[in-house]
Amino acid sequence: MITVERLSKTYRVADKQPGLAGTLRHFLRRRQRDVSAVRDVSFAIAPGEMVGFLGANGAGKTTTLKMLCGLIYPSSGQVLVAGHQPQRRHPDFLRRITLVMGQKQQLIWDLPPMDSLRVNAAVYGIPDRVASRRIAELSDLLELGEELTRPVRKLSLGQRMKAELLAALLHEPELLFLDEPTLGLDVNAQLRVRQFLAEYNRRTGATVLLTSHYMADITALCPRVLLIHQGQLFHDGPLDRLTSRLAPERHVRLELEEPAPAEAFSGLGRLDSLENCEVNLRVDPASLTRVLAQILERFEVRDLEVNDPPIDQLIGELFRQGSL
């Protein structure tokens, strides 16, 4: 469904130093430099896949998404989406895709969503009867009712996002590009949008590419994750493989019956903390079974937990460090 080969995007931006001298210099002799937003990114997505697109702000994920839906021309590389070059925005291509941006809206602000839906139905050439049936189905799934006949400006953020989704999916696109669709929604609304997307994918077999800052969106919906970092693709594969790549150790938490000295844990991994009876260790997954057996042999254990570090914490750390 999507094939991306060595895709790159470079922007030219003007640099301006602060102060009067900087302003005058900027006015008389503008200095520009090239900023590489996306560099040599390659991947392929099969029909029906739900793929999460992760990355910090400015990592290049929205730029990539916009290149895939045809809003941005690539600087170099090849993109083929549903058999089309997206930047040509061929009507057949446009009928097969949709883009939902959490921060942007397509609904007419002062009118009820139903008016915008009628326009969309006409623009996409959906017969009235089919459009009514789809609106009924989608509004049922999204739990939208009288909100469809209330002006958009009077709707809550969650209701508005659901109406935006309805408008974006009315033409039953095969490909959904979702850029932060749960941004700013409360926990319940996020959950409902997530459930809806999963159900929509199950019913229609649509391909979904989703960016989100909420890891819960990604973990709930996307078996496969693309992690883009400083414009480059850092990871393409299942989420748990990303976890083991970012954190090659397991966290072992112990609660002992009696306190033990630090030396007692030598050869059992890296000792993170030791406070009375509570011990935190980091252990290489390859030796985990052996280490656990030794722990149970050496100590009286009241409680034992083995965890992967939370993925959002790992990615957050990665973004904060700014390098891999």
Partner: peptide
């Protein structure tokens, strides 16, 4: 305000 982007992605 970026409202043009969704318009550009419709077949009109």
């Amino acid at each position: 305000l970026g409202r043009l982007s969704p318009y550009l992605l419709q077949p009109l």
